[in-house]
Design a protein around this nucleic acid. Structure first.
Lengths: 189, 189
DNA sequence: TTGATAAAACTAATATTATTAGTTAAAATA
DNA sequence: TATTTTAACTAATAATATTAGTTTTATCAA
């Protein structure tokens, strides 16, 4: 009757192996063949843990978003306002730098509209909403601000990861200035 | 001696077919098999035109960036300052909306550091640099500003495309407010 | 006009993938 | 102890990209 207690670490181990593959070689190398080899099992055996490659990508997306959330939540402890904006922004970009494959996985779910993926993502969004509440933005402005911050952080990380920023100018400084400009501008208008 | 005059439209036709596939079904459906079927030829024949799937992705990336540049250049005609910022931002997002697959291809080159890809991208960057010159930013600030604008535009388009914005609040309004906040903030600080 | 050349298609074959179906060994539960 | 579930397995299939070598066709030069 009771749904058989899970072995527990099994799926997590698989996801961690997949995350390692992703961070080392990129998501395009996260194949069932490579993952199975790393785990010492045969590719079909993986179907006992998730529903094929699409299922793996979905689970990796959620895993990645959850890990990103943890990092952001830690960064948001004990800070508020401009300081919080900067702190979580740095934490976000830092996460993408340290875990490029996991960050990449964050956006590679076969269906981003999927309920579970959305649920994981909403935790991150809610965190940003709470940080922005310090600015007491009126009406829809808070939503616009959340969208803006997410766009900046994702765009910045994504462009940095794909080598989009070529100039020899410090990237951390760029991020800081961009965030400060945005928050300042959102407060004014 | 003279390198046989090209048929001319051949490669462009192929890229347009690939772009259609990408826009209709997404980049993951742009396979050599699907592309060949659409063109009425056999997959290996495509190797006469580019170097495998990687070569196609690279050519599609450049093709997409070039088309994006054209749209932005058109949008930048006869405007300057805040108006130009808003106009090209809208044009950028509009392009990503109308050509989701081509925009996706823009970031799917096997090696974004590739010289040809960089060259195509630098035209877009230069265009943004010119628009930002109206603000007479000092020193590295111009570079930070370019990075910020690109982050916003790419992040916004990317998140919108992958269904990242769930709230029922007008997306165009969001973009406008975000851009205005950012430009205003860059001028102040 | 004819012959050489090069482009661009083709067939055939191979290596990797993901995937499905059905099977088996081991562990946990009742 | 008997049963059930988990999680591995083998075998087989379909789709993919890719390589090698061949053939057709159009263009250019003589």
């Amino acid at each position: 009757m009771s749904p058989r207690p899970k072995v527990g670490l099994e799926l997590t181990e698989i996801l961690e192996a997949a995350a390692e593959l992703a961070d080392q070689f990129g998501m395009q190398e996260v194949t069932l063949a490579n993952l199975a080899k790393k785990l010492g099992i045969r590719p079909p055996s993986l179907y006992n843990h998730f529903d094929g490659l699409g299922g793996l990508r979905k689970k990796m997306a959620i895993y990645g978003i959850d890990r990103l959330y943890e990092v952001l939540a830690q960064a948001a402890i004990g800070v508020s306002g401009d300081e919080a904006m900067l702190t979580i922004s740095k934490a976000y970009v830092d996460f993408a730098r340290k875990h490029p494959g996991v960050y990449e996985a964050t956006l590679m779910a076969p269906d981003m509209e999927d309920e579970d993926v959305q649920h994981a993502g909403s935790k991150v969004v809610d965190l940003i909403v709470r940080v922005l509440q310090a600015y007491r933005l009126e009406g829809d402005t808070a939503i616009h601000a959340v969208r803006g911050l997410r766009s900046i952080l994702h765009g910045f990380s994504s462009l940095e990861q794909s080598g989009g920023f070529k100039m020899a100018v410090d990237l951390n400084e760029s991020l800081e200035i961009i965030i400060k400009a945005f928050t300042h501008g959102m407060r004014e208008n």
